[in-house]
Design a protein around this nucleic acid. Structure first.
Lengths: 209, 209
DNA sequence: GGCGCGATCAACCATTCGGTTGACGCAGGC
DNA sequence: GCCTGCGTCAACCGAATGGTTGATCGCGCC
């Protein structure tokens, strides 16, 4: 290894940033900066041109997926390694779609983290074991992706609206809402709206925030 | 200050443990141990007899609330300062009921964390600003606490069961289920089961896990 | 003993929901 | 050009839900 791998840490928790910095510093890795939200992450990355960006997903303000998308467009040289607490299907899918090169969970031990950083720095993809399983599973049964309109409906359902209220909110007829719901039920493998909301929450298709 | 405050760190993420250790070491605080789950936390606390236990809530295995309850019984000398990512009403309520002496969020800056540790070590209560607000709010309107039976029903509702299925599962009549639901709706201030589930999830009364 | 509250149940009703069938226009891919 | 999928809508039906009133029982508390 000729030069140290230059790493930018992105996380909203100072504690985690400190912990990562302590864990990574030394060896063949150099922490060159930190950021506390997605916007700052993009700015810092453009300024510092890191080799690897360690990216948290859930952050106040601009989130990690958005920042990842921006980075893969505006700074393709930077490899993005997502490091998050959550591992829902939708989180993983969105992050990888946005251009992430790796996906690790925060409970990963130190050596796994170091290995993953070296892997993505070398241009390969690093996935946590549990995540890798979901990815192949996702490649198999792909027919259950909710369309954007279906997500609109589902989010309103989660808000407790009746079909009629949803129809008014989306400016469509109640019949259309019901059609969307039937498709949602089939895709999620459930029988009613309440189960649809909870399984969508579990899968990460929608969020309560 | 005669002696350093002896702190035990409890968190399932090695990264966070490292970060906290780095943040706290020095000054008048000494990190004397770490634990990765609730059971280990109790064992380590009994062995090391720390002044303050920094306790995460959501952990694999035995969770932080249970551990807090055990500690307040078996090692009353140890003050428990909860340090978590989440701040739902029910989390806060349960932690304080279990005997926690403080409640901080993980995005707290370093000096706030240090201040809180010194505060609880001195025998006082330390609450994050956002948490304190919820606590007084909770003391005001206390009439909306769901009974345990209502929670049983609500958990099954969240699982997508029909009233009839819930009745069978709990071995009561469908009429009783409906009665419980009406009470739940009133207490949560919602109009239907779906909204009940989402607001209960937001409040932390129930969980998806 | 009386009171309140939680838990249980019944009967009734209007509304809503879930499911089906069938239909149309439109965009994108083969 | 054809087919698929998405989004839109209508009409219909049975089942589930939400709301009401009223009732009984047991427990803890004053």
């Amino acid at each position: 290894m000729t030069d140290a791998i230059r790493v930018l840490i992105v996380d909203d928790h100072p504690v985690v940033r400190d912990g990562l910095r302590g864990m990574l510093t030394g060896d063949d890795i150099e922490v060159i900066g930190e950021a506390g939200d997605g916007d700052a992450a993009v700015l810092e990355a453009l300024r510092l041109e890191p080799d690897v960006v360690l990216m948290d997903l859930r952050m106040p303000g601009s989130d990690g997926v958005t920042a990842t998308g921006q980075l893969s467009q505006r700074l393709p040289s930077a490899r993005v390694l997502v490091l998050t607490t959550y591992d829902t299907d939708a989180d993983i899918r969105r992050a990888l779609d946005a251009g992430a090169d790796g996906y690790l969970l925060k409970d990963a031990p130190r050596d796994e983290l170091l290995r993953a950083i070296r892997t993505v720095a070398a241009g390969r993809v690093a996935l946590a074991a549990s995540v890798a399983g979901r990815v192949v599973e996702h490649l198999r049964g792909d027919g259950d992706v909710l369309s954007s309109r279906e997500l609109d409906v589902l989010r309103l359902v989660a808000g407790g609206r009746t079909n009629r209220a949803i129809a008014r909110a989306l400016d469509i007829s109640e019949a259309t809402v019901k059609t969307h719901l039937v498709h949602i039920f089939r895709k999620l493998g459930v029988a009613d709206r309440t189960a649809a909301v909870t399984t969508a929450l579990e899968r990460g298709d929608i969020t309560l925030a």
